[in-house]
């Protein structure tokens, strides 16, 4: 049984509509996000991903089509957009660029205060949000957010959205511009939010390797439309299409496809290094009777 939390139906959106610079960004998009899942949206720059997620919480209003959150059309009269924005927490790309308060705690408290929580509730929400993203409240709450390291700033910014206790967390390229260490930390954080704290998560990503490891479902966008949808395993079967869209597949998936093209069809559907290992190792050991001595050379 499914519990749809965000439902986008036949949405069209054009930037600068009615001017010579008009650019259609979404052309009849249908997407639904189910409660409790971890979905990744992939697509090259300009494919409409960022425009789509700004429809999820009513930052953009569709030219036509509907967006429903929790079963209610968010553009119907009487719907308070602020409630929608609380339910659907949206973390922008480079979210640390939105920090503005004098202290970390005050910055994270911005959203809860806007939502009219009492001071005790605000304080509680801030502490909880910091705990969830592994920031030490006592050590950091009174520091200026501008003094922190890049990775810490980003986590403060994510905490600033989590403090609203959203039902869905939407992150636009949360690892953009980070070094590999920082990327792993943020990805681990997101996995934890999903697994331990039960968040529904929508992730926009450019890394096929990352989404293969993390996402339960992929939504592929190209030219303002959803062109593929399914588990990473299903989606990555369409290597040629994905390459044509400027996306590609994880290296190991490509490896298996190349091997198959050379007449060595080991296994389809390999998307991680571990799977490739399990597939290839027995085959390679089998043929290597004589080659044993070369190991480690």
């Amino acid at each position: 049984m499914s519990d749809t939390i965000i439902q986008v139906r036949n949405v069209y959106y054009t930037y600068m509509r009615g001017t010579p610079l008009a650019r259609q960004a979404l052309a009849g998009v249908n997407v639904s996000i189910e409660r409790g899942e971890l979905v990744a949206i992939i697509g090259r720059t300009g494919s409409g991903k960022s425009t789509l997620i700004q429809h999820f919480n009513g930052l953009l209003k569709p030219d036509s089509g509907t967006v429903a959150v929790g079963g209610r059309d968010i553009w119907r009269k009487g719907v308070v957009l602020r409630d929608i924005r609380r339910k659907v927490g949206l973390v922008f790309q480079y979210p640390e660029h939105q920090l503005f308060e004098e202290t970390v705690a005050a910055d994270i408290a911005f959203a809860p205060r806007n939502l009219g929580m009492s001071e005790t509730e605000v304080d509680e929400a801030v502490r909880e949000a910091m705990r969830v993203v592994d920031l030490d409240y006592d050590a950091l709450c009174d520091r200026s957010p501008f003094e922190l390291s890049g990775g810490q700033k980003r986590r403060v910014a994510i905490a600033g959205v989590l403090a609203m206790r959203p039902e869905v967390l939407v992150l636009d390229e949360p690892t953009a511009g980070m070094d590999p260490r920082g990327r792993e930390e943020v990805l681990a954080e997101i996995r934890q939010l999903h697994e331990t704290h039960g968040y529904t998560i929508v992730l926009v990503s450019h890394s096929m390797e990352d989404v293969a490891r993390f996402a339960e479902r992929l939504i592929v966008m190209d030219g303002g439309a959803v062109v593929m949808e399914g588990s990473p395993r299903e989606v990555f079967r369409n290597r040629d299409d994905l390459v044509r869209m400027g996306l590609g597949v994880p290296q190991v998936t490509g490896l298996m496809a190349e091997l198959a093209a050379r007449g060595l069809p080991y296994a389809e559907d390999v998307i991680t290094v571990e799977e490739a290992m399990h597939t290839l190792l027995p085959a390679l050991l089998r043929v290597s009777g004589r080659g044993e001595g070369e190991v480690g050379a």
């Binding site: 602020r82 924005r85 660029h97 911005f110």
Partner: peptide
């Protein structure tokens, strides 16, 4: 462009 983005980011945090 940046102003637009920051505004949206703060609106996403309930700013009015």
């Amino acid at each position: 462009e940046e102003t637009d983005k920051i505004m949206k980011a703060q609106m996403a945090r309930g700013a009015d």
